[in-house]
Design a protein around this nucleic acid. Structure first.
Ligand SMILES: [Zn+2]
Ligand SMILES: [Zn+2]
Ligand SMILES: [Zn+2]
Ligand SMILES: [Zn+2]
Lengths: 141, 141
DNA sequence: AACATTTTGCAACATAGTTGCAATAGTGTA
DNA sequence: TACACTATTGCAACTATGTTGCAAAATGTT
């Protein structure tokens, strides 16, 4: 795990620091998307709040994580697939937010469906967020 | 217009107050969705910040306006169609955010396409937000 | 080890949103 | 119209969230 994280950082052209290792680790530990506050809880007082903000921004820039828009407008982050790289995200999958456990999931295998735009509107990005009850809360594992 | 606004408030079971009239008016004046800050600009210093927050929340509860999730996680509000009522929103249309003029539009005629959920996941609401360049910025009016 | 370059922590600030409570305004009735 | 009752508003204080500049510390390179 430690080595996997170090490789990912090196591959992204980032230097290996304690905060980056720990924050990246939190994403591998949990299997759902994380809000800033979740990460703050996980890393405790080891790192400054500002460092977490900057680290997350760096990870987004380098194509390591992507942001997920939510109906209640909280910022949530999740690991990208391998195909993402610096400046080029390809996270065109549907996201799911459980109203019960409040976790956010990447539905990696569900691609956002195409939709016809009205004349004059040019689409460059489409986000689809589904709310409901997740498979764990439905007791279907 | 004044009468139209008063009727809408009465129909929603709300008392007629200056702040509600003015805030509702801002939505009829502009033809795009509005953020809290936009409304604050429009009403000036006539009303307290807190009043705007509470009024918007009341309008959402009564089915007068709906919120729109955005990729940069700013809360944006737009008028609902007539079919919405207290506790029952039916705003299943696609939303569009222009990267150029930064305005948010309800594409009332574009219905959010259905999407198949993985086993165990139950969908109750689907939000689709498209980013790109709007018809005005494309000079197609 | 020594150096140049990044990254981090701190402090201070800015914006967004919430809560309790007393003052005020709106509504229905006499 | 005046009254009483209820709903709404403004204020103050607070919490949460996010940003910036700069000096200190850590990292990578020679
Ligand atoms: Zn759940
Ligand atoms: Zn995702
Ligand atoms: Zn535009
Ligand atoms: Zn809408």
């Amino acid at each position: 795990m430690e080595q996997k994280i170090i490789d990912l950082l090196k591959r992204s052209g980032l230097s290996i620091t304690d905060s980056r290792k720990k924050i990246l680790d939190s994403f591998f530990q949990k299997n759902s998307a994380l809000a800033h506050a979740d990460i703050e809880d996980y890393v405790g007082t080891d790192f400054d709040r500002v460092t977490i903000y900057r680290t997350l921004q760096t990870f987004v820039d380098k194509g390591i994580i992507h942001t997920i828009p939510t109906p209640d407008n909280a910022v949530v982050y999740a690991l990208c697939k391998d195909s993402c790289s610096a400046g080029h995200h390809h996270d065109n999958h549907v996201h799911f937010i459980c109203d019960n456990c409040n976790k956010t999931f990447c539905l990696e295998h569900i691609v956002v469906p195409a939709v016809k735009m009205p004349t004059g509107f040019n689409a460059t990005q489409i986000d689809m967020v589904v709310s409901g009850v997740c498979n764990f809360c439905n007791n279907v594992s």
